[in-house]
């Protein structure tokens, strides 16, 4: 048990409470985009993947870390783009931007 672990636990628990209280009354129309957006946010794993790639020494570490970076990039980029595409369609009036972009 070191001091920074306590600090980390502190951030962790606060974030748990924030996440818990943010999602209470969400209209069903936003369930899918919200799931998709939080899916993109855990793409923050890309930060972790970068750290292990930078630290990697030797072939096996490089392969494992590189694969982690690849998967995390897919998660983060794909996640945000797909969410944006869903939300792009939420317009009040159909003619605001003409026909939906294909």
């Amino acid at each position: 048990m070191h001091a920074s672990l306590l600090q980390e636990l502190f951030s962790f628990l606060l974030a748990i409470f924030v996440g818990w209280s943010l999602i209470t009354k969400i209209p069903p129309v936003l369930h899918t985009p919200l799931m998709s957006a939080t899916n993109a946010i855990h793409g923050v794993l890309v930060v972790g993947a970068l750290i292990v790639v930078v630290a990697a020494l030797g072939t096996s570490q490089l392969i494992v870390a590189g694969l982690a970076l690849f998967l995390a990039t897919l998660n983060v980029v794909g996640g945000f783009v797909v969410t944006d595409r869903m939300l792009e369609m939420f317009r009040k009036t159909p003619n605001e931007k003409g026909q939906a972009a294909k």
């Binding site: 980390e8 855990h42 794993l45 972790g48």
Partner: peptide, 28 residues
Amino acid sequence: AAAAAGFVLQNDVLIVAGALVGSSGTIL
């Protein structure tokens, strides 16, 4: 899992973002 990776790497942004998704995802 992202939050756990944050504990492994002692990285705050992973911990906070991971915990945020973990709890909001559970509620959802």
